[in-house]
């Protein structure tokens, strides 16, 4: 019988026997792709230096992961795109004109300390790219807060240094910020397209939104974290950010500047370090937004997205414990009348 000859070759495994096409690698590479518009804009405004800084971050991150894993005789996981993503995100979070050792140290910290030592992708508690950047900011505060003026057309090897919009806002107030950009409309437009000083990939709101749209469309991220994060920042900026009392702030400046868009859509949504239950993600997003605004308005730094996300990362496991998914047929405890 033909069937008997085959029988010994049958594979036995647990159900289900068919599976979806989604893989970790496909998700990660799609996220990498979604950052391409922001990367292109960074090169447009800050020149070849932007590509050099980001490229160095990526190369270091991927190499570090590969060497770490092979030297421990583990299977290398660089193909899943997560080391590449960590490098890319770190690069896009750095100022344009940092010396060569900054991307290298940052990537090593991000990949090895923040991710691999915890057990690799899936086990890390904090967003690796932000840990890398936080380490750099604390260790090299001057280098990490020296911003180049954006030019355009892929040049600007030797740009002038300047302050970021949030820096001006913090030090000199909103009137001066508007004056620097001409008028309010000019200011908003510059912030939207990204013609302003800042970290490489954070400046162009439009480019980031294009990437975010791809991720939302593919279902890789949902609205919960970005929306609650951004909405909280907007509301707090409007309510508390004004010079002349409550509800006089300008929310748009806060929404479009700093690393909010990059952080809300691409960093806070990092699967591993955010809560996985959707309701919990809303709490997480509100927390990120609140801490961001607390730092921007009252803290020593002009920008707070990074520390906000890192601080909320700590709470992600707790949120997941407290906010559980909604059980089908959950039995609500009723007080039974005593008979």
């Amino acid at each position: 019988m033909a069937t008997e000859a085959k029988a010994h070759e049958l594979i036995v495994s647990v159900s289900p026997h068919v599976r979806g096409k989604e893989t970790v690698a496909r998700i990660m590479w799609t996220v990498n792709l979604s950052l391409l518009p922001a990367f292109i804009m960074s090169v447009w405004y800050f020149g070849p230096l932007a590509a050099y800084v980001t490229g160095l971050c990526i190369a270091t991150a991927v190499l570090a992961e590969h060497i770490y894993q092979t030297s421990l005789k583990k299977k290398t996981t660089i193909g899943d795109g997560s080391a590449f993503l960590t490098g890319l995100l770190l690069g896009l979070n750095l100022p344009p004109s940092v010396p060569f050792f900054i991307p290298i140290i940052g990537s090593l910290i991000a990949v090895i300390i923040a991710k691999l030592i915890f057990g690799g992708l899936g086990y890390n508690i904090f967003n690796p790219a932000f840990i890398g950047r936080a380490f750099l900011l604390i260790s090299f505060p001057k280098l990490l807060t020296t911003w180049s003026e954006p030019t355009a057309q892929f040049v600007a090897l030797d740009a002038k240094t300047t302050a970021t919009p949030l820096g001006i806002l913090k030090e000199e107030g909103i009137a001066r910020l508007v004056e620097v950009f001409g008028d309010k409309t000019e200011l908003y437009m510059s912030l939207l397209v990204g013609h302003r000083a800042g970290s490489l990939g954070e400046t162009s709101v439009i480019a980031l939104l294009i990437g975010a749209a791809l991720l939302l469309y593919r279902g890789y991220i949902t609205w919960h974290i970005p929306f609650s994060f951004i909405a909280t920042v907007g509301v707090m900026a409007w309510a508390l950010g004004g010079d002349s009392g409550l509800f006089t702030g300008d929310p748009l400046i806060h929404l479009f500047s700093g690393g909010l868009m990059l952080g809300a859509f691409f960093m806070a949504t990092d699967y591993v370090t955010c809560p996985s239950v959707r309701k919990g993600q809303i709490i997480f997003g509100i927390g990120c937004g609140a801490i961001t605004m607390l730092i921007r308005l009252k803290g020593g730094f002009p920008e707070g997205v990074m520390f906000a996300v890192l601080l909320m990362n700590c709470f992600a496991p707790l949120i997941d414990r407290g906010v559980k998914s909604e059980l089908f047929g959950a039995v609500r405890k009723k007080k039974e009348p005593k008979t």
């Binding site: 899936g122 699967y271 591993v272 239950v277 997941d320 959950a330």
Partner: peptide, 22 residues
């Protein structure tokens, strides 16, 4: 298979509203 990346896809599809990831 690899470690759970806690993407939450399983929570979004579980008909019983469980947290299969956890």
């Amino acid at each position: 298979y690899s470690a759970c990346i806690r993407c939450g896809s399983c929570i979004d599809v579980c008909p019983m509203g469980l947290n299969p990831s956890m």
